[in-house]
């Protein structure tokens, strides 16, 4: 009884929606903190960001969390679709005249639409960055130009804090293997490792001559959608889990509202900053 109840019943579906939703809210915070580094300017901005990106793609604990995130997104979406289909079935004949705005807020009625848009955004977003980072053979490595003996030289930055002259690679002395590793071409020994330049990918993406503006606008729009989704979703998750107490309700509601505004706003500020402000 209890087992099937936890999987199949209408209430259980709500629990899973709430739990995955709240977990994704946590993810948003983590993701945001990392991404905000893109707002930094100065010498080390790119390096710091790329270092962070490297950490995020290699640390085992982070890996585990990322799998949990993928799972949550999928589950949240699938569960949402199942719920929506069931809910549509619960009212086979609709009203000729209906006035839903007199008793509910818009966002709460459109979670499925908002969620679908967010899902589309997530897929696009992952194609744009995540897939590039993970799979693109042409993913650039971070380089710097430094004046050495009055001559400007291009160097790869390496994870040991050192450099690897680009010329060496071009001349064939050094091979790049596994996308980031510098190998002695003769000895077949790994010497150093470079940084994937996600910073550059990101900046190029939003500063793209043709698509930069459109990408920026679409990203900002996506954050609007996210804001509405969170506006209802955040406090709703608490209600679904039964965490409703008159003492704390207004706290949860207000925090949820603030969260739904602040987090997407900060996310949206990044492409805007890159496109319009970053030199």
């Amino acid at each position: 009884m209890a087992k099937s109840a936890l999987l199949k019943s209408s209430l259980a579906k709500k629990y899973w929606m709430a739990l995955t939703g709240l977990f994704l809210c946590l993810f948003l915070i983590g993701h945001l903190i990392g991404n905000l580094q893109l707002l930094a300017t100065g010498e080390n901005a790119a390096l710091n960001f790329n270092k962070y990106a490297l950490f995020m793609t290699t640390n085992p604990a982070v890996k585990l969390l990322s799998y949990l995130t993928y799972f949550s997104i999928l589950f949240h979406a699938v569960d949402g679709i199942v719920l929506t289909v069931q809910n549509k079935k619960a009212r086979p004949v609709g009203y000729v005249k209906n006035s839903p705005s007199s008793n509910t807020v818009w966002a709460s009625r459109n979670m499925a639409v908002l969620g679908t848009l967010i899902l589309v955004f997530i897929v696009t977003h992952m194609v744009n960055f995540w897939a590039v980072m993970h799979f693109d053979k042409n993913m650039p490595l971070q380089k710097v130009k430094i004046e050495v003996n009055g001559m400007e030289q291009e160097l790869y930055l390496t994870t040991d804090g050192g450099y690897m002259p680009v010329a060496q690679v071009e001349q064939g002395n050094i091979e790049i293997k596994h996308r980031t590793e510098f190998y002695d071409a003769n000895a077949h020994v790994k010497i150093k490792e470079g940084y994937k330049d996600l910073y550059k990918v990101t900046v190029d993406f939003f500063k793209h001559e043709k698509w930069g503006l459109i990408a920026t606008i679409l990203y900002v729009f996506a954050m609007f959608v996210l804001a509405f989704h969170l506006y209802h979703g955040f406090s709703s998750a608490f209600q679904s889990l039964g965490l409703n107490n008159p003492k704390y309700n207004s706290l949860i509601k207000n925090f949820g509202k603030a969260f739904s505004v602040v987090v997407p706003l900060l996310f949206a500020s990044i492409p805007v900053f890159i496109h319009f402000i970053l030199k």
Binding site: K14, L83, N87, T104
Partner: peptide, 9 residues
Amino acid sequence: FGNCTNTGA
């Protein structure tokens, strides 16, 4: 019956 999505209607 359908599921609750906490719209509050």
